[in-house]
């Protein structure tokens, strides 16, 4: 597997939120803010660009919701390669953290 580039914070949080299950843009944004204690905000322009790029990479997919109350709403879901990219990033971050503690 080719070495993956470090991910931007927005990309990472989007993938992280989606690993919990399909969600829409606004849901991802709220969840990111909650997880990071308000430290990370994902604006609409950033969200639209990041989700568009990640769909092109094949990391996420768009599905139309059929849940009651969310009918016809656009949801994003993680693909297998998206899950793989997230896993790679997590192990990169773990390695960095472990290295930091060693030093």
């Amino acid at each position: 597997m080719k070495k993956s580039e470090p991910m931007s914070e927005s990309y990472y949080y989007i993938l992280l939120c989606l690993s919990k299950g399909p969600n829409h843009g606004y849901g991802i944004m709220q969840m990111t803010e909650k997880l990071s204690g308000g430290e990370v905000t994902i604006g609409s322009g950033t969200m639209y660009g990041a989700t568009g790029n990640m769909m092109k990479k094949g990391w996420i997919q768009e599905i139309i919701s059929n849940e009651p109350g969310l009918e016809r709403k656009r949801l994003y879901t993680l693909t297998e390669s998206g899950r793989e990219a997230l896993r790679a990033e997590i192990s990169r971050l773990k390695r960095m953290l472990a290295n930091t503690e060693e030093v």
Partner: peptide
């Protein structure tokens, strides 16, 4: 998708 993403926020 563009307008929906912006409108949601």
């Amino acid at each position: 998708r563009y307008l929906e993403t912006y409108y949601e926020q």
